[in-house]
Design a protein around this nucleic acid. Structure first.
Lengths: 217, 217
DNA sequence: TCCTATTATGAATTTCAATTCATTTTCTGA
DNA sequence: TCAGAAAATGAATTGAAATTCATAATAGGA
C-alpha cells in the first residue's frame, strides 16, 4: 500500500517533469515545431520515456491546456467568492485574469498562438475541449454580470453573455500586445518597447473602459 | 503583345482558381491539415500544377492572407474617407469591418484559427507579415481615434493606440462567436443557434459599448 | 547477492505530406 | 497538318518527425 503510493507519487513527479518541459518547449516553438525530442531533451528523459507517460503528442498538449485553463478558472473563482459586492467581483475577475496571464506568460504564448490551431471546424478534439473551457469561463463571467445587471450596477439593455464577451475581449486587447512585447524583449536583449509595464497595471484602464466607455464627458 | 497578354490573363485566372480553392480548403481544415492534394483536387488541377503557380505551400498561404488583409484595409479606408465627421468615421470602421468579415466568412475562419499558427517567436515569416498588416490596421484606427480625441468626441486620458486595441477586440468579440455559430450551422444542417443574426447588426451594440461603456445610467 | 519485474533508452521503423520531375497532353504558329 | 514549345500531370522521391520496440539499466524483494 505504502510502496504503491510512493511509486504513484514518483510517477506523477515524472509526469510533471515532462509537462513542465513541454510547456517550455511549446511556448518557444509552438505545437508543430516542438518535437518530442526537444521535449524529452528538456526534461532530461529519452524520447521513449515520454511515451510511457503520454499516449502521444496530442494528449501531452491537451493535458497541458486542460491543466492551465482549469487552474485559471479556479484561481479566478476562488478570489471572486471572497469579494463582497458585485462591482468588486468584476474588478477581481479582471485583476486575477491579468495576473494569471502574467504568471504564466510562457504558457499563454502558446495558448494564444496555437489555440484553435487545428481550426475548430470538423473533428479535432483539441479545440473542442479548449473552446468548451473558454465558453465555460465566459458563462461564469456572464453570470456575474447578470447579477450586476439585477443590482443596477450594469445596464441591462443588452444580454449579459454579450457583455461578458466584450469584457473578455478587452482583456485580450491588453494581453495580446503584452505577450508580443515580452517575446520581443526576450528574443532580442532588453528592449523597453513602450509598454514594458506590468500587465496587472492595466486593470484600471480596462475597468474604466468597460464601465464608462470611450466617450468624452 | 496581344497573345502574351491573353496568356498572362489565363495564367492569372488559374492562379485565382487555385487561390480560391486554397481559401476554401484552408478554411475547412486549417493550414497543417490542408494538403496540396486537397487544394489541387478542389481546384481540379494536378498536384504539380499548383507548384507551377506557387513556389510552395507557405507562399500560397501568405499570398492568400496578404490579399485578403489588404482588401479589408482598403475597403475600410475607402468608406472612411467619405464619412463627413469623426464620429461617422468610427461608425464606418465598425460597420465595414463587420461587413467584410461577413462577406469573407470562410476565409476568416482560417485567419482567426491560423493567425500566428506557427507562433510568432522564432523565424517564420508567416505570422510576421500578418501581424504587421494587423498592426498597420490598428495604427490606422488609432489615427482616427486620435482625431476624435482632438475633436473632443473621445476622452483623451488614455492613448489612442490602446483604445484602438480595445475597439478592435470588441469587434473580435462579436466576430468570434459568429464564426463559430456559422461553422456549426454549416456542419450540421440548419441550426438557428441563438445569434443567427447578421454580423452587421451588431455594429450598434459595439458602438454603444465602445462609446458609453457598460455602466447603468 | 541474485533473480525478476519494472522502467528507461534511443536507434530503427513508420507515417505522412511536401516537393520534384520524367512523361504526357495541349497549345501555337508555320 | 505537324514540329516544337509550354503547360499539366501524378507517381516517385524526399524529409522530417512521430511512434515503436528490442535492449539495457534499475529497483525491490527473497
Amino acid at each position: 500500500m505504502l510502496a504503491l503510493s510512493r511509486k504513484e507519487r514518483d510517477r506523477r513527479l515524472r509526469r510533471e517533469d515532462i509537462l513542465r518541459a513541454a510547456e517550455h518547449i511549446f511556448a518557444i516553438k509552438g505545437y508543430h515545431k516542438a518535437s518530442i525530442q526537444d521535449i524529452a531533451g528538456e526534461a532530461q528523459y529519452a524520447v521513449g520515456t515520454v511515451y510511457l507517460y503520454f499516449k502521444d503528442k496530442e494528449v501531452l498538449y491537451t493535458t497541458l491546456i486542460e491543466q492551465k485553463a482549469q487552474e485559471l478558472i479556479l484561481t479566478v473563482k476562488n478570489k471572486v467568492v471572497k469579494a463582497k459586492d458585485v462591482r468588486e467581483k468584476i474588478k477581481v475577475v479582471v485583476q486575477e485574469h491579468l495576473s494569471y496571464f502574467e504568471k504564466n506568460e510562457d504558457f499563454f504564448r502558446i495558448y494564444f498562438s496555437e489555440r484553435s490551431n487545428f481550426s475548430w471546424t470538423v473533428k479535432d478534439r483539441i479545440p473542442q475541449k479548449t473552446v468548451e473551457r473558454f465558453l465555460n469561463y465566459l458563462d461564469y463571467v456572464a453570470s456575474i454580470i447578470k447579477t450586476a445587471q439585477a443590482g443596477g450596477i450594469i445596464r441591462n439593455d443588452y444580454p449579459a453573455q454579450k457583455m461578458a464577451y466584450i469584457l473578455a475581449s478587452m482583456l485580450n486587447a491588453v494581453i495580446f500586445p503584452w505577450l508580443r512585447s515580452e517575446s520581443i524583449r526576450t528574443s532580442s536583449g532588453a528592449k523597453p518597447c513602450g509598454n514594458g509595464r506590468s500587465l496587472k497595471d492595466m486593470s484600471g484602464f480596462i475597468l474604466d473602459m468597460f464601465f464608462n466607455g470611450a466617450k468624452a464627458k
